[in-house]
Amino acid sequence: MRSRQLRARDMLRGDLEGEELERYVEERVVMTNFDKMLGWARSNSIFPLTFGLACCAIEGIPMAAVTARYDIARFGAEAGRASPRQADLIILSGRVSIKMAPIIRRLYDQMLEPKWAISMGACSSSGGMFSNYAVVQGAEKFMPIDVHVPGCPPRPEAVLYGFTKLQRKIQGNPDQGWRARYGAHGTEEWARGGPRGEPSAEAAKAYLAARELIVSA
């Protein structure tokens, strides 16, 4: 400790030179690019929109996840913003009805870039159990979603886990899916494809483009 302080003093005085100075700089300075630093700062100071739709709101960011047991302040996102113009994360916590969908889209459009969206629970991810006339079958039909958290409703821990995934994504280092991790390409299920289950031409094209992006990143 003492010797480090002495060396720092020497450096400030300009006494260090040559190889010694270079080693000093290498040891003490983290080199990174500006984007990474920005991502690091952004991901740890997210302002979520205090926005609750249904069941998941009681378990999610508006309520349970901010309270003492789960405490989202550990991840720097406890400051909920009531106005979409101040928020950069919207969490769709609950089922999206046909009456609410245009309003959610409007809230999302009002948020300033950069902005992210988490779809919490089965309902907003896929319509969940409510496959009927009143519920939009998945919020991805009208807005982009970054992270889907499964569950009905997800536990607060699951929301926080999804939240950390989003942080990785913001830092420009998104977690890959299980297919990438286990090298399981080619096992994808295609809802609408050719007669033997192969993907349709445009689906395959979109998939290859997406994969190219991931591999190049």
């Binding site: 319509g127 409510f130 496959s131 009927n132 006339y133 009143a134 519920v135 079958q137 299920e189 295609w190 809802a191 609408r192 494809g193 007669p195 033997r196 289950g197």
Partner: peptide
Amino acid sequence: DFPVGGEPVTFTYNER
């Protein structure tokens, strides 16, 4: 007589 609505869940196996 109003349909329930929603979307069917499609799987590769069933589609095939």
